[in-house]
Design a protein around this nucleic acid. Structure first.
Lengths: 195, 195
DNA sequence: TCGTGGTACTCTGTATACAGTCGTCACTTC
DNA sequence: GAAGTGACGACTGTATACAGAGTACCACGA
């Protein structure tokens, strides 16, 4: 397959599947929204975005179409698009939906789980118990769930869960300033029970 | 807030959010894909589509971005887009995911259900028992689930379920030529049990 | 003071034009 | 014949231009 004479060459990631401007813009905007840098209701002017990214409005519009399909922004014909905020009901729903799906994919994965995976999951959970920094804790949590659910091979669901996690983390970050609210101990107990 | 003197006026749906070409094209293409008129792997040439819809390539590209985000087509930079097929594993997953979510939203809705809704659901289920035409049966099935799950007010999940139903029906239609496979009696029993 | 109409301006939606990439096929070379 | 090379055609990605919808603001009249 690959020519050994060329093994010294490192293919730059992102060169193989060269992203077009619209992809790059969509990714950047998604990151900004999920990181909270673009607040709910923030106005997304096509001209401003185009000049910000140094492109014309065409790829910006394509990126916005995608974000709209993902539910991150709201667009109406002939009006400026805005970042879509979620009310508390919807956030709660997102969390509930996520935990339902997480439970389900782990169930699916159970027959495929071996001792190694369980050991990794156990270690991650112990690490989480020690971790006090909330963003880091979240990252560990995501890894814990991923390692237990990936063997399920339920690709569509895993992809969906990834999106749900991102979306809900968007709000966790805002809440993480009020440390009393984290249910880290509960999560630990739940995880232990799963294991 | 709203002027009571105007309460008699019915705002026409579709007038408020006038669709632009890209929306129209996306809807048309989605319908065609889900109806099976565009087979898996069918090539989606931008120029052809543009002339088919009588527009330029710009709105066609936007529509395709949206369909890509919905998982209905596959696009790669500088190559033609194709309709995305699902293998049997993925179809099975879609079904399983759908039934998990349908169960969950109905659970959520239970506290909100009153006798009227239950009566409607019961009638629908009886109708389904008599219905021999498979596409009509599917429509009844969708109505049955919708009437029981809408009171849950879990908007995100309901929207997601709508998409999943559409996607899985795409394959049900192909299977509906082999009448032995329908599990209509099982479904009836399940529904009765739910009620 | 409130509502109405008009006007200028901003922004979006789309057509068109151009540049760059990919695939194909004939051609060359070994 | 197989593999590599170059050229051509088809198609995509993006900039630019233009037309039309929406908005803000102000003057005017009830």
């Amino acid at each position: 397959m690959s020519d050994p004479a060329l093994s010294g060459i490192r293919v730059q990631p992102g060169l193989r599947d060269r992203r077009i401007s619209a992809d790059y813009i969509a990714d950047s905007m998604r990151d900004a929204i999920l990181a909270g840098e673009l607040a709910d209701g923030a106005v997304l002017n096509q001209v401003s975005l185009a000049s910000l990214f140094g492109v014309s409005r065409v790829p910006v519009r394509e990126a916005m179409r995608q974000l709209q399909a993902e539910g991150l922004i709201e667009t109406r014909a002939h009006r400026v698009a805005v970042v879509r905020g979620l009310d508390s009901d919807r956030i709660a729903e997102l969390y509930a939906l996520r935990s339902v799906l997480e439970g389900w994919v782990i169930e699916l994965a159970v027959p495929q789980l071996d001792a190694d995976v369980l050991a990794v999951a156990h270690d991650l959970n112990e690490e989480m118990r020690q971790e006090v920094d909330h963003p880091l804790w979240l990252a560990l949590n995501a890894r814990f769930h991923r390692c237990l659910s990936e063997p399920s091979a339920a690709l569509t669901t895993l992809e969906l869960l990834g999106r749900l996690r991102q979306q809900s983390e968007r709000y966790v970050r805002l809440w993480s300033r009020s440390p009393g609210l984290h249910r880290t101990e509960e999560a630990y107990a739940e995880h232990a029970q799963i294991l």
